[in-house]
Amino acid sequence: MSNDLTWLLLRNNNSFLVKRVPEGPVFSKEPGNLRNLHSAKYSGLVNNKTIDVSQLPNGAIQVKSRKAKTTPHTIAKAHHTTTIRPRSGGRRALGITSSFARRGYRPDLRTAALSRVSALQRAQREPKAPHARKTRGNKSKAAAAAAAATA
């Protein structure tokens, strides 16, 4: 079945639709949808070539692409999988996502895949401790005077 016919059948009713606001955008939770937007371009169910970015339990990020000649319901051999180790830098993510574009495998999804990988890496980072704030102006003069008076 062609991608266009599949989209016509699935666009109004599938189990992954998220309709929160009647006038707002319609989102989708399907695997392989990088932007989570309900559109034919980003749909993981409709397109033969999809890129799926997910986080593994050990903290690694998995970038999975479907081989073009397979159906969405085939076995694991129908996917090409690349893993980005935890705490890897952004250059590694850029290299992996741009490798898909260099091979001609959905170059239009490169920025979406890179933003998804970057967001997952950003979520893994431990937040920095806030710096101690210095008192400035009249408050610091008053604090210095109080410290001198007690000493």
Rank of each mutant, 00 (worst) to 15 (best):
E30R: 00
V26I: 08
N14D: 07
A68G: 10
H79S: 11
R116Q: 04
T97I: 01
P107S: 05
A78P: 07
K29Q: 08
H73L: 15
D4F: 11
V21R: 15
P127D: 13
H73A: 13
I61G: 01
R87N: 11
A123Q: 06
G90I: 13
V18D: 13
A60W: 02
P22W: 04
L10W: 01
R35C: 08
I61N: 02
R20F: 14
V18H: 12
R85K: 10
K77L: 13
K69P: 12
I51E: 02
G59S: 04
S43E: 01
L120M: 08
K41S: 04
L10H: 05
A142M: 06
A147S: 08
K19D: 13
P25D: 10
R133Q: 07
A119W: 10
N13H: 10
Y105M: 06
S15Q: 15
P72F: 04
P22M: 06
A78N: 08
A101W: 06
S99D: 06
A113N: 03
V117N: 01
Q124H: 11
I51D: 00
A145W: 09
K139H: 14
K134D: 08
A112P: 11
S28M: 08
P107V: 02
N58M: 03
T50S: 04
S118L: 05
V117E: 03
V21F: 11
D52M: 02
G89W: 07
Y105I: 07
W7T: 00
T135K: 15
N48P: 00
P22D: 05
E126R: 15
Q62Y: 03
L94R: 04
D4C: 07
N138A: 15
P130T: 07
L109F: 12
L9S: 05
P57D: 03
R11S: 08
A78R: 06
A76K: 13
A146D: 05
T150P: 11
Q62W: 03
L17C: 02
K69R: 12
L34E: 01
K134W: 09
K64Y: 11
I75W: 15
R35N: 12
N12W: 09
K139S: 11
V63T: 01
A78Q: 02
S28I: 09
T71V: 15
S115D: 10
A148G: 04
S88E: 08
N33T: 00
W7A: 00
N47H: 01
A78F: 02
V63M: 02
P86R: 14
K41L: 08
A148F: 05
L56A: 11
V53F: 04
L120H: 03
L109I: 08
V26S: 06
R133G: 06
A132G: 13
S118K: 05
V117R: 00
S15C: 13
I84A: 00
L9N: 10
V117P: 00
I51F: 00
